[in-house]
Amino acid sequence: MQFATFILATQRGYHQTSDSVIHDAIEQTVLSEQAGFDTAWFAEHHFNNYSLVPSPLMMVAHCAGLTKRIRLGTAVCVLPLYQPQRLLAEIGFADVVSNGRLELGVGSGYQQFEFERFGVNIDNAPAVFSEYLDIVLKGLSQKIFSHSGQFMQIPPTAISVRTIQKPSPPIWIATGSPSSMRRAYRERHNLLVTALHNGLETLGALRGMIQEAAAAEFKSPGDAKISLLRCCYASADGAEINR
């Protein structure tokens, strides 16, 4: 078992400035490495104070210069909100400046108001995610690639900045969907999953879903790495914990 820090960079109140929240998140990353954590993951959100990180790859690139060992991950890049060709170059750049420490987490997104403000139809998010992931996989594995799909047409294209990790950084799919879980096992990706604040019953159901997805692809659950997000708050003050 490995342990990681998921850094949301929440602005809990307007008594906190945005720059203090971001610098605290960076300091938390440095301290996570010193404490022996294996990975620091950075969220992506927009237009709210739930998370002040608009680009997890920018956090990876910045924290790469302040750390040496800890792996740095995106949790997640919301693929339907990206242009995949540009994202591919930024993935390569982040892996280069981190000396091959990038963990690439991707997801379809879920916050409707974010999609509305980007002019993207959230109803199409699962299908767009699937197609854009196809494009990302092509761009990571092929020096020149093209794509003809429902949402994107790309002529023969070369991505100049290539990742250090071959054939690509580890790819993690954030999902609670059986079909996406099956894809992860089928294509040898990893899983980012959560039971949110729920307890053992929800965790058991999640485990069952993972087992069924693996079996459907003639795999065992252990054929993929599984990152389970659990929420915690550390304090000696019970009232503070509850609040």
Rank of each mutant, 00 (worst) to 15 (best):
H23W: 14
A25K: 13
E27K: 11
Q28A: 15
T29Q: 07
V30S: 05
S32H: 07
S32A: 15
Q34Y: 05
A35E: 05
F37K: 05
T39H: 12
E44M: 07
H45R: 14
H45C: 04
H46N: 08
F47R: 09
N48W: 01
N49E: 15
Y50C: 00
Y50Q: 02
S51A: 06
L52W: 03
L52K: 06
V53E: 00
P54T: 13
S55G: 05
P56V: 07
L57C: 07
M58I: 04
A61M: 12
A61Q: 15
A61G: 14
H62G: 00
A64L: 03
G65S: 15
T67K: 13
K68H: 12
R69L: 06
I70E: 02
R71D: 04
G73A: 15
A75P: 02
V76S: 12
V78H: 12
Q83V: 02
P84W: 03
E90Q: 15
G92F: 01
A94P: 04
D95Y: 04
V96W: 01
V96S: 00
S98D: 10
N99L: 03
G100P: 10
R101G: 08
L102E: 07
E103R: 06
L104E: 07
G105P: 04
V106C: 12
V106W: 10
G107A: 11
Y110M: 05
Y110D: 14
Q112I: 10
Q112V: 10
F113T: 15
F115A: 09
R117L: 07
G119A: 11
I122G: 01
I122N: 06
I122M: 14
D123A: 15
D123I: 03
A125C: 02
V128Y: 08
S130H: 08
E131R: 03
E131F: 02
Y132D: 11
L133R: 03
V136Y: 04
L137V: 09
K138G: 01
G139N: 13
L140M: 03
